[in-house]
């Protein structure tokens, strides 16, 4: 497939070809799947995916693959070392004249938040530090989804997970805040970091188009509404994704040339409640008794984030 060049402005600019064949075992309505589908429309077929154990390893189940390019299954902590091994092998072949430029490909890590924010973080940090060359797509469903939705370093304050449910002793559910992977990466000054939403295909596509030609570690953090783990009807995936942006909970931004730029700024932020109350993982904040302090603290976190930029 020939890739688009230039700015995307409307839906009709999306690449008409699907780079991921249907038939995978991911849940109906998976927000992360929509994210990677749009990403690969922009990146094309010449991508090797190094996939950390998680929901997305169900994309390819022997003897079937949905991809036109190559795919490699790695342990939860090691997608980046795996990607690096592939990149090194390609570079060696290029240098030895055994791989033509047009046969070369990009290497992209695909990993969940558990892998990205917890187990796989140390090797990732080492790879950014050494200026290694890879794309990184993190589909963030805010828990260890594949194993039944346990608390991860990316689970937000106030959410219920299998290992940190709301109980009498811990009425908020998760009491720790979400690790800010954007800022953790930014501290190491890689060439490109972006947050993307499956609900914003144009914004997402333009970000991938910008990063495609760069070299070095490039992160895409995709907030991925998960009907199964978050507890909402699959048809609401985009409603939830949109509310995450409109409430200001999930800022769409990119880090490029040492600057953070917001690519969509909600004009008037919708109260966080509207986002929370639609999901079962936050139901305990509203029933049987309303936990005003917890809701207020979540709202305050959002407001103080945006206060930095207003």
């Amino acid at each position: 497939m020939t890739l688009h060049s230039g700015e995307h402005k409307k839906i009709h600019d999306l690449h008409p070809e699907e780079a991921i064949a249907p038939g995978s075992a991911l849940c109906a309505g998976c927000g992360g799947l929509e994210g990677i589908r749009l990403a690969l429309k922009e990146l094309g077929e010449n991508v090797l995916i190094a996939n950390a154990a998680g929901c997305f390893t169900l994309l390819s189940v022997f003897p079937f693959t949905p991809f036109k390019g190559s795919w490699l299954y790695t342990t939860m902590a090691a997608p980046v070392p795996a990607a690096q091994g592939v990149r090194d092998a390609l570079d060696i072949r290029r240098e030895a004249g055994r791989l033509a430029e047009e046969d070369d490909f990009q290497v992209m890590v695909v990993a969940g938040d558990g892998s990205s924010a917890d187990m796989g973080l140390a090797p990732t940090s080492a790879a950014i530090h050494r200026h290694l060359d890879f794309l990184y797509f993190c589909y963030d469903n805010e828990a260890y989804g594949n194993t039944g939705f346990q608390l991860s370093g990316a689970s937000p304050y106030g959410s219920a997970t299998q290992t940190a449910p709301a109980t009498a002793g811990h009425p908020a559910g998760a009491e720790l805040g979400k690790k800010d992977l954007f800022e953790i990466w930014k501290a190491q000054n890689p060439p490109y970091i972006a947050t993307v939403s499956p609900r914003e295909p144009i914004d997402l596509s333009n970000k991938f188009a910008r990063a495609r030609g760069m070299k070095g570690a490039r992160l895409f953090l995709c907030l991925s509404p998960c009907p199964t783990g978050w507890g909402f009807d699959p048809k609401e995936t985009h409603t939830i994704a949109k509310l995450a942006v409109d409430t200001g909970i999930f800022p769409l931004k990119e880090y490029i040339d040492g600057q953070v730029v917001h690519t969509r700024v909600p004009k008037k932020r919708v109260p966080v409640e509207n986002y929370l109350e639609r999901q079962k993982r936050f139901r305990h904040l509203f029933e049987p008794t309303r936990q005003d302090e917890v809701i207020a603290r979540i709202q305050q976190g959002v407001d103080s984030y945006w206060a930095h930029y207003e």
Partner: peptide, 18 residues
């Protein structure tokens, strides 16, 4: 080894029955 050399053959699995 579990190597897959086909491309996009996942569509053999008809998820319409879900």
């Amino acid at each position: 080894a579990p190597l897959i050399t086909a491309t996009g053959n996942m569509q053999e699995r008809k998820t319409g029955n879900w």
